[in-house]
Simulated scan of single mutants.
Amino acid sequence: MNKVWISVGCFLLSFGSVAGDRIISAGAGVTELLIALDKQDDLVAVDLTSRFAAVAKLPVVGYHRQLSAEGLLSLAPDILIGSSEMGPQSTLDLLSQSGVNVMVLPTETTTKNLLDTITLLGDKLDRKSQAKQLIIKLDHDIKQLEANQQQIKTPKTMLFLLLNDKGTYTAAGRNTTAHSVMTLAGAVNPAAALNAYQALSAEAFLAMAPESILVSGRHWQKYQDIDTLIAAMPLLAQTPAGRNKAIYVIDGRALIGGLGLNSIEQAKQLQVKLYPYLSANLELELKN
């Protein structure tokens, strides 16, 4: 059985109301959406990435990419909701064969996909009112980000680096949440020509000459400060970002499962850090 890819259109036709059902959420972005839609009381478990106060007391089913069918079935769920990143496929197949509805949400890294997913979940989880209010707030935030972009005098180049123990330079290209967050913040990704995450040669990395570097907070914990990071990855010192110590940290949960609520919040914070002259708190007057 192949993984069920649920588009907005076919999902509306194929899945009935899930109000009051026992839900397991796999992925920080999905859990965050369910909490925002006031569905945390229907959650019976979450995955390891879903570290939020509202679900802190719930059982943890492991990492969303390495789910165990036995562990999930022991919780008697009606529904498993996650992104296309959850798996493995064999676990999803066993759950489906056991009568669990496996909902694989679209994970496109666009604001439209995020808004469509909220509408979709609001309809199916009996949370239309909450979804509407959430969309209004998000739409305002997105338009504010876009309006601020028009005030940016000179866009800065920013490269997202996936830090690892091997000391390699792996960058986020297009079709990644990191790319979308940087773009929303008004930065230019010099690795945009790459597809997804790709390792860079020393020559390719230096040729990109990023003015700023973005790293995940989870990976940053190993280094704690910029000098330690540069010592571990000495090529950084040869870039404008390294020379100016323009290295920023993003909440890694904002990069899991496509563009999510935290992704938008991280883009707002990043935009202010990159361009302090922007009136980030100025309310955008929208025309009717």
Rank of each mutant, 00 (worst) to 15 (best):
Q238S: 11
G217D: 14
I264G: 10
R253N: 14
A232F: 01
V249C: 07
S212V: 07
V215S: 02
I230G: 00
Y248H: 14
D251M: 09
Q221W: 00
W220K: 08
A246Y: 06
L236A: 04
R243S: 10
V215Y: 01
S263Q: 13
L261N: 07
Q221A: 15
A231F: 01
G258W: 03
L236R: 00
T228M: 06
T239H: 05
D225S: 10
I247Y: 00
S263K: 12
Y248F: 15
L236I: 04
G242Q: 05
Q221H: 10
Y223T: 07
I250A: 13
Q238M: 07
V215Q: 05
R218E: 13
A237Q: 12
E265C: 09
A241E: 07
Q224Y: 05
I250K: 09
L255G: 03
I250L: 15
L255P: 06
I226V: 13
S216M: 14
D227N: 08
E211D: 07
I256Q: 05
D251A: 14
K245E: 02
G217H: 12
I213F: 00
L255W: 06
Q238F: 10
L214N: 08
M233E: 01
L229W: 07
G258D: 04
I226G: 01
A232S: 14
L259D: 03
V215P: 09
A241L: 10
L261T: 02
Y223C: 05
M233A: 10
A267M: 10
Y248S: 11
K245G: 01
E211L: 04
T228G: 08
Y223F: 15
D225F: 05
L229C: 06
E211A: 04
N262I: 15
